[in-house]
Nucleic acid binder design. Sequence first.
RNA 1: GGAGUCAUAGCUCAGCUGGGACGAGCGUUCGCUUGACGUGCGAAAGGUCAUGGGUUCGAAUCCCUUUGACUCCACCA
Length: 886
Amino acid sequence: MEKELAKTYNPKDIEDKLYQKWLDKKYFHAEVDKSKKPFTIVIPPPNITGQLHMGHALDNAMQDILIRFKRMQGYNALWQPGTDHASIATEVKIIEKLREEGIEKQDLGREGFLERAWQWKEEYGGRIIEQLMKLGSSCDWGRERFTMDDGNNHAVNKVFVKLYKDGYIYKGSKIINWCPICHTSISDAEVEHEEQSGHFWHIKYPIAGEEGYVEIATTRPETMLGDTAVAVHPEDERYKHLIGKNVILPIMNKEIPVVADAYVDKEFGTGVVKITPAHDPNDFEVGKRHDLPEVNIMNDDATINENGGIYSGMDRYEARKAIVKELKEQGLLVKVEDHSHNVGTHDRCHTTIEPLVKPQWFVKMDDLIKPAIEAVKSGEIELIPHRFEKTYFNWTDNIRDWCISRQLWWGHRIPAYYCDSCGEIIVSEEEPSRCHVCGSTNFRQDEDTLDTWFSSALWPFSTLGWPEKTEELNYFYPTDVLVTGYDIIFFWVIRMIFSGYAHMGEKPFSKVLFHGLVRDSEGRKMSKSLGNGVDPLDVIDKYGADALRFSLITGNAPGNDMRFYWEKVESSRNFANKVWNASRFIMMNLEKADIPETIDERILTQADRWILSKSNTLVREATDNLETFEMGIAAQKVYDFIWEEFCDWYIEMVKPRLYNDEDNTKVAALWTLQKVLTHSLKLLHPYMPFVTEEIFCTLQEMTGLKEKESIMISSWPIYNPDWEFTKDTESIELIKGAVKGIRNVRSEMNVPPSRKATVIVVSDSERIREIFTESKVFFATLGFASEVLVQKDKSGISGDAVSTVIPSAQIYIPFADLVDIDKEIERLTKEKERLEGELKRVKGILANPNFVSKAPESKIAEENAKLEKYRDMMDQVMERLQSLDK
RNA sequence: GGAGUCAUAGCUCAGCUGGGACGAGCGUUCGCUUGACGUGCGAAAGGUCAUGGGUUCGAAUCCCUUUGACUCCACCA
């Protein structure tokens, strides 16, 4: 034997070696080949600042499973990899690092900062890729892309200019979400709403020129510095008389009008609302409707600016306190109530966002989104599981314009240029040479960069070469499946879909497969602050990538969150070890024999045909499950088959034949072992690529059967209709039942395997007797029988035997000295009661005229067969009980 | 205020389009140096499928109610 497998499976010995081999052989590489059907997945590009976490591990394991499966099926499978510049996340990290060196971002200036950022990218950008490799990901690394590489920059600029020219991108002063810590605007999708307990301050605003006042209630008293009106509902009888009059804004001592607007809820608060158009999205709208001035009272760091009078320079919360204090002193504070309300925070830093009016760039969404809605509605794009369609439509139906400008440096700089002399805005891919209005040649490029999702929205086609008309684009686009977490439906999935239609005229992918979050063992989100994260690399180090992958995709339904358990990884590792050892055993036997590629199928035994049949069914089912993305179910079936049917039953059944050189069916056993093992390894390969590859290669070397030099390029097993051996399957299931019965009896009586005994099978059916006669040998190894007698009647069986009943046969084991008649009666009585229950159920259902008339025929036949079976068993139990009674 | 998910063995979860829960892993109990594997083998205990209704010959599975847990969306000051 050239190669030998170690006694226990050690992933560390083989994983890196095999991955390197795959890379060297370029198995991951896909070339355009019109003779083959493409299957394409684009990776959700991980962040360059990122460390591999469990979410990545799950996401990539799923993609790798699909890609490997399709590759083996003969598709030209491309898994397109790459990384994301992740503008704000990266910029924040770089700023943190600079601070450690005592440097502020501003000190470096834009150029200097970007230099550092690229350095960072060079240093860390490759790390996450190496980590993905550890998982076994079969990405076509030669095609790796980055959202800020030249091609992507080109794509981004082209899209921006095109959308601008077509009127979909505009610049406008609107109220946006401002993060006072990150000093940038953020989109609605980046705002997280947190329930916070706060207060409701009731404040008097005196009516100008007359006695009295109105009482308003607010959660943010500091914004009153920027109030430019108060509003009441037009139909509110209490305040109708005030409409058109003025009130005096306390502290600022300025007159502001009372306007009528239906936005005001009469029932809520006092029914009078202060209007601060520059600092509240609703008020902004009201302000627009009533043509109110917008008074901005805040700086970018959320301190009060010069418009805030004496509060100028104070932080927003400091100012709040001071203002409340002042109102109290002036007797204008009516009361303070506790109040819990939703506060918008930045999803990155969790700072309370500040709505501010600022000039920003937006994408007009109402028309662009239409094809994206239609695609999912019509089923052209399928979301799996379907329930996410509701989430999807919830967002698309309430779509708002997308704020795409960010006040950051790391990212795609907006390709808009301002003429120095006349201020004309020129949007173009290249810096313009002269102004088309005034002829000036001096321009200033817009300082802002684009939302990081602007470039990722183009990912499915930009990575394939767009805007160039590459043959890759032509061949691999649209891609087949997108695999991602449900948490980025709004950020990414929707934007890719509308972008695909807008720029390619076609969907970016046909299916989106969503998975959930990987939580810790207590169900909490894994997070840095909790310190409960589990590093996938640690898991790989301890148990291997195969075990990690397997444990992540089994035992949970698609789209559901799951918990991480070390125990589960361990059990997956044990499974890998099981496969390893079964293979080792098979190879130990194969090496001494010469197995032909095909054999005369007439020498196959019942057991051989049974396992071939089972394995054949498994091929069909596991393939079907994978086709419908039920990976966990497919994996579970492969696991059950290998461990139970193949290892615990078939291999054990076949041992006597292997140890007996005289047995002329030995070659059939070896042939079957090899065949079924190969099929099993292939079915398992997408989940456990490393262990299956190692075994497959060793097996090939040993047997000299050179199918392929790697399992990952071998062909996926195909269902063979000639291997449906129904009769043999029934026979073996009967034998299994008998063996189980014997083991049960022995175990209950505490008879150790070392004590052999005669097994007597009694059946009046000739067919049953034949089955048992052919399979006598199994009882020796599996049921610890010294000899097996198969007979028609009970002659020679005395009362002091224990027995077990299976359909159409009775099995006796004469343990003369051990038999405790009372115990035997007790056992049989228990069995009798069980059968009585079954019979009652079956008889009941068959006696129901509605069932008999309405249920499908097959179901009725099934129930009739059961009835017969239970009756037969019952007869035997009763007979046995009577014989013991004497 | 909308929407969604979950509630099945001690624990974590599977159970697809309705047809007996031979459910899975871990854990528990008992027994095994069976010539691949103790990361193993065999046997066993353990569930009125949250609640109350409905549809059906038949419901863990479909519909509604209630309770409890979670998540997402949302401009009620």
